[in-house]
Design a protein around this nucleic acid. Structure first.
Length: 489
RNA sequence: GGUCUCGUGGCCGAGUGGCUUAGGCACCGGUCUGCAAAACCGGUUACAGCGGUUCGAAUCCGCUCGAGACCUCCA
């Protein structure tokens, strides 16, 4: 089935604003670059949403059988934002505050980030290159851009020459901005700028006295510009043009626009065939962000340590919650929504276990293949995980009906459905069944306890059976009386 | 101020011209049960407002109202 389905994948391309059929540049191989975090603090849940969404993309491409090279950078060089060079870079600022070296800051938060990836069951990218590890590559790209006449040096800094560039290329094609209009749109014009043109951006920035990180370059000591690291690293690991470039929607302009300019300006080629942008995670309708203070940390929510919610949620629940919305839509995070996801996910994962132990029939009473195909169709339509989940719940309903003897399934279909449900739930959505797995040592104990309760019930000794039930409840174990047997969780 | 996006039932959230009852949760009814919970089955509630195009619009166009994003670091 995968062989037939692999050709059906469509991806929404920000560059064209349409869904396009996906065909990799090199057959069977996919190159994907995603902009990673700047590690001057711990990533919050909003950041995680983007990484989880691209994890979904990565997982589905693998599921379809592609060999995927997934590059996600780690920004460990701070970037001076103000063109006058007055503002401190984010990493340097954090370093000063915590009285650590910049790379100690980055290391510290990278350890946490890596841990979060494990907790949230993100597949590790093929490589996570760092900006500071690729200063030479960045310098070389800048040199190429200068050779091509699209950059100029001023006083130890190098700027990209947008005006010259747009004579040969279309600056603004990704974000739909027109350079002529940009000037009026800009809120704060910096009159003191060294730049020839307001839209020019720094490729290399001359060092300040108080910079904590400084590198040597042909133009003197300084720092690489914000955008150049992605161009350098994507080129190095994926080539001048690769299949997919992803990132958060807030990076579309100027970051990704400038990446395109740098690639075209150096190699003459556009960096990526497909640009994918993941939308923001909202809290009460507003983008989760540090400045608004409406963020919480991924670690806090799984520990129940945030004031925003009165209980802890499993990482699985957060993942499922996010998968219930499309990656290109904003998603509002509320406690009610999380509670809904928690229950729904439990029902979904439990049904997989039910299916595993189901009784076969000679024939299936419903079209199993059609349900499975709906899984692929959903994901092939621009990774539409919410539709996939709706399809999975169709299967859940059928499985429960089979259990009740109202539908039936053949052994062959059971095998197919189980395999594909596991595939989509575990491998594609990246959920785990951990929550349903019981402690090996506790198992026989619980068997005994429930047996005793069953005896009490047989004797109509309700006092004893309720004592056991209530006692277990206090211990955090809920007893579920089924038709034929009693289970617990 | 400029550019753009969005406004779906109690909540979250899909769907872009013609039965999608999307789906999840909640709620109501039922089955089961010693009771309760859990499971399961069934059901109700919607397309911001106004106008237009069309045989027909949640879906296309216009206007109004509202929300948000980007233009500065941001996933």
């Amino acid at each position: 089935m995968k062989d037939q389905k692999i050709k059906g994948l469509k991806i929404y391309n920000t560059l064209t604003g349409t869904k396009e059929g996906f065909t990799p540049i090199h057959e069977d191989y996919v190159g994907m670059y995603v902009c990673g975090p700047t590690l001057y603090s711990e990533p919050h849940m909003g950041n995680m949403r983007t990484f989880i969404n691209f994890d979904l993309v990565y997982r589905y491409l693998i599921y379809l059988g592609y060999k995927v090279k997934y590059v996600r950078n780690i920004t460990d060089a701070g970037h001076i934002t103000n063109s006058a060079g007055e503002q401190e870079d984010s990493i340097g600022k954090a370093a000063r505050l915590e009285q650590l070296q910049p790379l100690e800051i980055v290391y510290k938060y990278n350890v946490r980030f890596q841990n979060l990836q494990k907790i949230y069951n993100l597949l590790p990218p093929t490589i996570e290159p760092t900006a500071t590890g690729h200063i030479q590559e960045q310098i070389e790209i800048i040199e190429k851009i200068m050779e091509n006449g699209f950059a100029y040096e001023v006083n130890g800094s190098v700027y990209f020459d947008v005006q010259t560039y747009k004579k040969s290329f279309n600056y603004g094609e990704l974000s739909g901005r027109k350079v002529e209009e940009l000037e009026n749109e800009t809120r704060d014009l910096n009159a003191q700028s060294e730049k020839r043109f307001f839209a020019d951006f720094a490729l290399w920035k001359k060092a300040n006295q108080n910079d904590m990180q400084i590198w040597r370059s042909p133009w003197g000591d300084g720092n690489p510009g914000w955008h150049i690291e992605c161009t350098a690293m994507s080129t190095k690991y994926l080539g001048e043009t690769f299949d997919i470039h992803g990132g958060g929607l807030d990076l579309k302009f100027p970051h990704h626009e400038d990446e395109i300019a740098q690639s075209c300006g150096s190699s003459g080629k556009a960096p990526a065939k497909f640009w994918m942008h993941a939308n923001m995670l909202n809290v009460n309708g507003k983008k989760m962000s540090k400045s608004l203070g409406n963020f919480f940390l991924p670690q806090e929510i799984v520990e129940g340590a945030t004031d925003l919610f009165d209980k802890a949620y499993a990482p699985n629940v957060l993942r499922f919650f996010m998968m219930q919305s499309h990656y290109r839509s904003t998603l509002d995070l509320t406690q009610d929504a999380l509670n809904a996801s928690e229950k729904g996910m439990a029902r979904l994962t439990e049904s997989i276990e039910t299916l595993d132990q189901i009784t076969f029939a000679d024939k299936s009473s419903f079209d199993v293949k059609a349900i499975v195909e709906s899984f692929y169709d959903a994901m092939n339509d621009d990774f539409n995980a919410p539709i996939l989940i709706a399809g999975l719940f169709d299967a859940v309903k059928k499985i429960n009906l089979i259990k009740d003897g109202k539908e039936s399934i053949s052994q062959k279909d059971q095998k197919l459905l189980l395999e594909e449900m596991k595939g989509f739930v575990l491998d594609v959505l990246g959920l785990t069944l951990d929550g349903n797995q019981k402690d090996n040592r506790l198992n026989p104990v619980m068997d005994l306890v429930l047996e005793l309760r069953q005896q009490a019930r047989a004797n109509k000794d309700w006092a004893t059976s309720d004592l056991i039930r209530d006692g277990l409840k206090n211990a955090g174990i809920s007893v579920k009386d089924g038709k034929d047997n009693t289970s617990w969780q």
